[in-house]
Design a binder for these strands. Structure first.
Lengths: 184, 184
DNA sequence: GAATTCACTGGGCAATCTGCACAGTCGTAC
DNA sequence: GTACGACTGTGCAGATTGCCCAGTGAATTC
């Protein structure tokens, strides 16, 4: 099975310069390579990863443990495509809410399955949420449900047509690793 | 190791009503339960999943194979937290671009690591992108880099303060599974 | 109504991987 | 110069994976 793991061996510094991320808030090159490797081929195991990276298996285990306890890697949840689920339409809605209604509005939106994420932002004390729907017509239903709540003054929606850059993390990881390695 | 897998046994219908998703574009209850299970405990293997779901191991393997070839599950990439990487500031920028400059602008934005995703939307023939930065001051640098490209007329940025609903998929999966089971 | 197909169950086997542990090396810090 | 932290390499028992087979039950087809 796969329960928690208490690292007995060692933790994990990089093979390059000095062991462990020298900076305070980052990852080193080895971490970076590990994450990128995992991102590209999520199903490889610790053993295979160690072979690819050219380090000992224990090192990879230790690195992964640390990255997860660090919070750098939140988990390995399945990457589900809403479109394949039958929700091919994506939209972003900017909501303007009534003063002091934040809490209620959040709870309301959290209860709508089609609301995939919600942020509160600067600008107008507004919120920005990502929505999906089964069709453009269905989007109307979703929006009606979203805004059909006292506390939301008005909403402006932008329907997504294309997604030239899907949510990605690799370039950032590479930059973070490089930055860490050269120093702030 | 974990190479590709050619399913020999069977594929995968639900244990509930009729085998296989009856609808054309969905998942059935078993699929839904599988995805939710994987989302909650990503590290469990096929064997453990089959135990939890109360079905045969082969069934789980077949379901996962199908969900992946379906494209419902894109993969199991590590879920990296930009904040833990040293990029605690998130922002959404709405870009207004010059007519006919779409292609160039996309390429430009794709080259900026801090641009985590990019969408083209309705509204003004605009684009919406998600950015991250090391600090508010650093955000200025990122924005300058983003908009410092001929073709981008102007940009309006909204900095994220809170994230009441982090990107999620479970509620949608549950709804899709239920919908599939009751019929459009 | 009988045949066929499909999806799932349950069992089995060899190969592989995981979790855990131990001894040894190397560079840095005290 | 001693300690410490991080990594290497190796070993072992237990668990899991990939693959295959035979059988069952329900729905579709002829």
């Amino acid at each position: 099975m796969m329960t928690s793991r208490s690292v007995t061996h060692a933790m994990p510094p990089p093979s390059s310069s000095s062991p462990g991320p020298s900076g305070s808030s980052g990852i080193d090159q080895l971490d970076g390579r590990l994450i990128v490797l995992l991102a590209r081929e999520p199903r490889i195991g610790v053993l295979e990863a160690s072979r690819r990276l050219g380090v000992a298996r224990g090192t990879v285990q230790a690195r992964m443990d640390r990255l997860q306890s660090n919070g750098v890697i939140r988990g390995f949840g399945p990457d589900v495509d809403p479109a394949a689920l039958g929700y091919p339409v994506t939209a972003f809605a900017t909501l303007e809410i009534k003063q002091g209604q934040g809490t209620e509005v959040r709870a309301h939106l959290a209860g709508v399955p089609e609301v995939l994420e919600l942020h509160t932002t600067t600008g107008h004390g507004d919120m920005l949420c990502r929505l999906v729907a089964r069709s453009n017509a269905d989007l109307q239903r979703v929006i009606d449900r979203v805004v059909g709540f006292d506390g939301i003054v008005r909403a402006s929606t932008a329907i997504v047509m294309e997604n030239p850059v899907p949510l990605r993390i690799i370039p950032l990881v590479e930059q973070a690793a490089a930055w860490e390695d050269s120093g702030p």
